[in-house]
Simulated scan of single mutants.
Amino acid sequence: MSFEYVGIAAEQKGMHVWGSSPIIGPEGRVHLYAAQWPMSTQKDFSGWFKDCEIGHYVSDSPEGPFEYIGLAIADKDGQFNSPHNPTINYMDGLYVLSFIVNENNDLKTQRIVMMVAEDLNDNWRPASGAEADGTMLRKSSDPTVWSYTARLGCSNPSLIKFGNKYHLYNKSVVRKEPKGYVYTYGVAIADQLEGPYIHNTERITSPNFPLEDAYAFNMNDSVFFFSRDFGARKGNQGGGLLWKSADGINFPTEKVTRAYEDLAHYLGEEALEHAHVYRGKKHGHLERVQILSIDGKPAYAYFAVGLNVKDGYGSGSHVFKIVHE
């Protein structure tokens, strides 16, 4: 697979538009659920965990441009603060929107919420197996489970159906022996789409191979991840990786390959020379990968990029076409 740059999918003046997740609706239009927050409320990029909400965008084409049509999930502050990093799925006749929240701007309290609906009119309700507010997964309180030592809670969900089980992949920043912490992934598994989801005891990626922003998908009876190369193991941190698993639980590092590069690789450094950089570096980290599959294969990738060449615009969502060679 290779990636071909298409353009900006979604942006708003005066706003940061971050991770955006696509789904094709019954009318054939592409719906994009994106994290967004005003640039003016925080002087730095910290609005993502303080003032974020999830917006709803639509387009007649996967390549955009996408039109903002309204708010999908509001920031309620307090205990349901700053909904962020959405991922959208359609399974078993239901649309499933999973995302993270925290409590009172405290990253140590991050948890995963799961909402469901029969349509894309943003009438979301908590999944039946979740807590009353939709909370589906927290870091484990069981000392035998890999995420027990997590210092930033449980975050960044990605959901698939594999066989007759439902896999909710999740990230935690856990202790690394003999010292320090590492970004790593685990999986929680359910018998029913709406949960409950139970943490698998062991992590699914190696502590020696840090990753971030994993997106899981099925293809050819295997499970794959696209992820950010957070540890710069196969190149710089601005690009990403492709992981492969036969069972959806073990993702061996020897099968990891480089999947895509930073934005400057596709546009040229000259195109970003005068960009306003809000997060990352001027070559443009490609973060929060989310995939639109067509006919069972990844067809388009949507990335959050923490810079913009336009005055008054924050970070934006960029779309790439995936070419199968």
Score class of each variant (00 low, 15 high):
residue 97 L to R: 00
residue 125 R to A: 09
residue 9 A to Q: 03
residue 300 Y to P: 01
residue 112 I to S: 12
residue 23 I to P: 01
residue 260 Y to I: 02
residue 20 S to G: 11
residue 271 A to T: 06
residue 203 R to H: 14
residue 25 G to R: 04
residue 198 I to A: 12
residue 194 E to Y: 03
residue 306 G to S: 08
residue 187 V to Y: 03
residue 55 G to M: 01
residue 38 P to A: 06
residue 248 G to H: 10
residue 233 R to C: 13
residue 190 A to Y: 02
residue 142 D to H: 14
residue 20 S to I: 09
residue 102 N to R: 13
residue 313 Y to N: 11
residue 135 T to M: 04
residue 237 Q to K: 14
residue 294 I to N: 01
residue 160 I to V: 05
residue 307 L to F: 11
residue 112 I to Q: 01
residue 325 E to N: 15
residue 123 N to E: 07
residue 285 H to L: 11
residue 252 P to W: 01
residue 204 I to E: 00
residue 52 C to L: 04
residue 202 E to F: 14
residue 127 A to S: 04
residue 144 T to M: 09
residue 158 S to M: 04
residue 16 H to R: 11
residue 128 S to P: 07
residue 216 A to N: 07
residue 182 V to Q: 08
residue 139 K to W: 11
residue 255 K to T: 13
residue 157 P to G: 00
residue 311 D to G: 03
residue 34 A to V: 01
residue 261 E to N: 13
residue 73 I to K: 03
residue 246 A to P: 04
residue 65 P to N: 07
residue 285 H to I: 10
residue 13 K to Q: 13
residue 15 M to L: 12
residue 310 K to M: 09
residue 288 R to M: 09
residue 231 G to W: 02
residue 206 S to T: 03
residue 207 P to N: 08
residue 132 A to H: 04
residue 32 L to E: 05
residue 278 Y to M: 15
residue 222 S to T: 14
residue 172 S to K: 05
residue 222 S to V: 07
residue 142 D to V: 09
residue 268 G to D: 06
residue 178 P to F: 00
residue 57 Y to P: 09
residue 76 K to G: 09
residue 157 P to F: 00
residue 20 S to V: 03
residue 217 F to D: 13
residue 281 K to L: 08
residue 323 V to H: 13
residue 225 F to S: 00
residue 181 Y to D: 08
residue 218 N to Y: 09
residue 221 D to S: 10
residue 158 S to T: 10
residue 312 G to C: 09
residue 53 E to T: 04
residue 285 H to N: 05
residue 309 V to E: 09
residue 222 S to F: 12
residue 15 M to H: 13
residue 133 D to W: 05
residue 233 R to K: 15
residue 257 T to P: 11
residue 172 S to P: 10
residue 88 I to A: 01
residue 224 F to S: 04
residue 120 L to P: 06
residue 206 S to R: 09
residue 75 D to N: 15
residue 300 Y to L: 02
residue 103 E to I: 10
residue 122 D to L: 06
residue 94 L to C: 03
residue 49 F to L: 12
residue 291 I to H: 03
residue 110 Q to I: 10
residue 16 H to I: 01
residue 138 R to N: 14
residue 57 Y to G: 08
residue 155 S to N: 14
residue 253 T to P: 10
residue 117 A to F: 01
residue 148 Y to M: 14
residue 18 W to Q: 15
residue 86 P to D: 09
residue 290 Q to V: 03
residue 147 S to P: 10
residue 160 I to W: 13
residue 175 R to Y: 12
residue 22 P to H: 04
residue 240 G to V: 12
residue 253 T to Y: 06
residue 59 S to R: 02
residue 290 Q to G: 03
residue 122 D to V: 00
residue 21 S to M: 06
residue 206 S to N: 10
residue 299 A to C: 00
residue 181 Y to M: 14
residue 297 K to Y: 06
residue 250 N to K: 12
residue 7 G to N: 01
residue 115 M to D: 08
residue 51 D to K: 15
residue 199 H to M: 09
residue 222 S to R: 15
residue 107 L to V: 12
residue 165 K to G: 05
residue 177 E to Y: 13
residue 185 Y to I: 04
residue 278 Y to A: 05
residue 162 F to A: 11
residue 103 E to V: 14
residue 211 L to T: 14
residue 123 N to W: 02
residue 306 G to K: 07
residue 84 H to K: 08
residue 270 E to D: 14
residue 318 H to K: 03
